[in-house]
Amino acid sequence: MTTFAVPMRRRGNLSGTLNVFVPTLLHTTPADDATCELHVAQALADAAALGLQNRSTYAQYRALSGQLQGALSSRVRIEQAKGMLAERWSVRADEAFMALRQYARRQRLPLDQVASAVVEGVVDDAELRRESGTSADGPA
């Protein structure tokens, strides 16, 4: 049996070693055959290194995609809550956003969580309205 240990490398980055075991037939292989087998083993190692690199890149992009989707969903909820409060209180959207932000800070809650509570109607509207600096009758 002939054994080769070849480096798994991609663009100068070493990611491991590939061991290739080649069974010998009844006759011995000439040196030229061994060189050919070594080249084939290196090609296999290079292909494996490429596969590992692609898997790593795919995992990174998938994680980034999830983070971006979460940020987009959060932004949509914040905009919905801002619009709901602006309409409900007859104030500008930036005033509604300031109330959301101040309430989140005082309660030590993430802004997205407060926005979700507004959209779901589970936040105390009177307490949230105090943060806006407006009264129930209209702008102060």
Rank of each mutant, 00 (worst) to 15 (best):
H39G: 10
H39I: 09
Q53R: 15
Y61M: 09
S56K: 12
Q42L: 08
R55K: 12
R55D: 04
A48K: 00
H27V: 01
A34V: 09
A47T: 02
L50S: 12
L64R: 03
D33P: 04
A47P: 03
L52K: 11
A59Q: 15
A63D: 15
L38T: 00
L26V: 00
G51E: 12
R55V: 03
T57M: 11
G51S: 08
D46M: 01
R55E: 05
A43F: 06
V22T: 00
R55H: 07
A45Q: 04
G51P: 03
A45G: 14
T28A: 07
T24H: 07
A43S: 10
L25P: 01
R62F: 01
R55T: 08
Q42I: 06
A47E: 06
L25T: 01
P23T: 02
D46F: 00
E37L: 08
V40T: 01
H27N: 07
A47Q: 04
Q60K: 09
Q53P: 04
G51W: 01
P23A: 05
A34D: 07
D33W: 07
F21S: 12
A63T: 13
D46N: 02
A47R: 11
Q42K: 12
C36F: 15
H27K: 10
N54V: 09
D32H: 15
A34K: 08
A49W: 00
V40Y: 01
A47D: 05
A45T: 06
T35I: 13
R55M: 11
Y58S: 14
L52F: 14
N54A: 13
N54G: 06
L38Q: 02
A47M: 10
N54Y: 07
L50N: 07
L50V: 08
E37F: 15
L52V: 09
T35D: 15
P23F: 00
E37I: 04
L26P: 00
D32Y: 11
L52C: 10
T28P: 03
